[in-house]
Design a protein around this nucleic acid. Structure first.
Lengths: 139, 139
DNA sequence: TTCTAGTTTAGAATTATTATAAACTAAGTA
DNA sequence: TACTTAGTTTATAATAATTCTAAACTAGAA
């Protein structure tokens, strides 16, 4: 097994978010972030991949907890879809999605592909956290 | 009980979508569309309102079936949120939403408040069904 | 009136997620 | 190094939203 060069970085990253660098969290970090391309996933799918062919499994509850913690810490972004299942994205940069209603697949839309020339002022006392465009497509 | 002036209209509307104008569907039509302002709802909330103080209840399964049928027929629009519960909108015109992460409330954004000056071409063989902007807000 | 495909229904089943509480562990302190 | 404790993990139970099932019902055509 190759030890990630980024392990130390993840330890620091986690500490800086007040998250203890546990074995489980580091394993999940490596799985999510030791790659060139960003990707989308559901908790169920992540659980399967993380625990495929390994001796010591990470429990489903921990996968849920970690994904939530990472989302709060800003390492992940929750994606909006119409389905009652949460999708996450390791690409936290501002960008948008196609959502294919048939295959239920999400595809990135690079932010430069969509231009908003007018955005509303948020209601009093509220701040805009995030602006997301989802384009639903079908055959 | 006032009989809706629009009953005949709903019968025709349903027929034109190959949906039999049953008592249940007409009741739901009246509840959803016999009003000046459009609104958002969840199936659970609709179920409660439809069956409040009535002798013969519409079953939850029918509420689900009907909302799905009406959405497919284009009478309703499903709204995108990050929560694992479906929200629907009787306003099917192109418009967008604020989604308050704290209160989980949805507010309409009039279409003129958002201007998209650039929209991507959909993948080959696919058509754009719907384009939705959700602005997540927080305190 | 009869027939049939479409619809409704109650309840069971499924799916995704959250809660619980006991066991474990990272990391600060003596 | 051992001790301590708050944070974390875990298996499992609980919950919530939705879908499935199959029997009973009904709109509308013949």
């Amino acid at each position: 097994m190759i030890i990630s060069h980024n392990l130390k970085m993840y330890v620091q990253k986690l500490r800086s978010s007040n998250l203890r660098p546990t074995k489980q969290r580091l394993k999940i970090c490596q799985f999510l972030f030791d790659r060139k391309k960003t990707f989308h996933f559901t908790v169920e799918a992540l659980n399967k991949k993380i625990n495929k062919n390994v001796a010591t499994k990470v429990s489903l509850a921990t996968i849920y907890n970690t994904v939530e913690a990472f989302t709060n810490a800003g390492y992940l972004k929750e994606i909006l879809t119409s389905k009652n299942k949460s999708y996450y994205d390791t690409n936290i940069k501002s960008h948008h999605h196609f959502y294919d209603e048939g295959s239920k697949e999400l595809t990135d839309i690079h932010y430069s592909q969509i231009k908003l020339s007018r955005v509303p002022v948020p209601p009093k006392g509220k701040k805009i956290k995030n602006l997301e465009v989802v384009i639903r497509i079908q055959k």
